[in-house]
């Protein structure tokens, strides 16, 4: 049990997919304009990660080595399609806001990366907890980045104005601002890591 909790926790800080492994940055940067979008993307990607990690851990012994990547991708793509259809049905607004980045979850490096690096080598239960931790870590990272960007770029949080009177810097809701925020956050994480080591 202790090991399982460790598997779960490592995804949140020590091997945070975004800040430490630097995986899955494309959707992170693209949808983090507002916290609401960030959480939506985090949950959608977490769902796909969970489903695919479990299935891949189950089928890892049947799949021939050479064609494993296409096989994994089909599994992932199936879950993405499920997520896409559910989003369309239950939250069309969010679906429109996330745009092409919903089908692009399929190529989110976190998911294939975890499939290749973890689920294809570990048991189903371990993979489940790995996926939960990674999904949560990804969502937290998204909340952090989108929070910073929403506050600085539009003076709001969750759509509520919190900085009245201050002119928000439009840059931060532009692509260039996303790159800047992630660069500085990665630097901060490095600084933090060095201090602890």
């Amino acid at each position: 049990m202790k090991k399982l909790i460790k598997e779960f926790l490592k995804g949140i800080i020590k091997e945070n997919p975004t800040f430490v492994l630097a995986l899955g940055l494309c959707p992170t940067l693209a949808v983090s304009v507002s916290v609401r979008n960030g959480i939506g993307m985090g949950i959608a990607a977490g769902f796909v990660l969970l489903g695919s990690n479990v299935i891949i851990a189950m089928i890892k012994n049947i799949v021939p080595e050479r064609i494993r990547i296409p096989c994994y991708i089909v599994v992932i793509a199936t879950f993405v399609t499920i997520a896409e259809l559910m989003l369309k049905a239950y939250s069309p607004v969010l679906n429109r806001a996330l745009g092409i980045y919903v089908p692009l979850i399929v190529v989110n490096c976190i998911i294939l990366g975890r499939a290749e690096a973890y689920a294809s080598k570990n048991s189903v239960i371990n993979s489940l907890f790995d996926a939960l931790g990674m999904g949560l870590g990804f969502t937290l990272a998204l909340i952090l980045i989108s929070g910073i960007r929403e506050i600085l770029g539009s003076g709001k949080l969750f759509g509520y104005t919190i900085m009245g009177g201050v002119e928000p810097a439009l840059l931060f809701i532009m692509p260039s601002g996303a790159l800047l925020v992630i660069g500085l956050l990665l630097g901060l994480f490095n600084l933090f890591k060095k201090d602890r080591a």
Binding site: A22, L171, M174, P175, S176, G177, A178, L179, L180, I182, G183, L184, L186, G187, L188, N190, L191, K194
Partner: peptide, 23 residues
């Protein structure tokens, strides 16, 4: 370059300024 910014972080900052100039 400051140690904590080496590699990835700096690359993002460069990309950010590049994106600004292409605006």
């Amino acid at each position: 370059v400051p140690k904590c910014l080496k590699d990835f972080p700096l690359a993002f900052i460069i990309a950010s300024i590049m994106s600004l100039s292409f605006m």
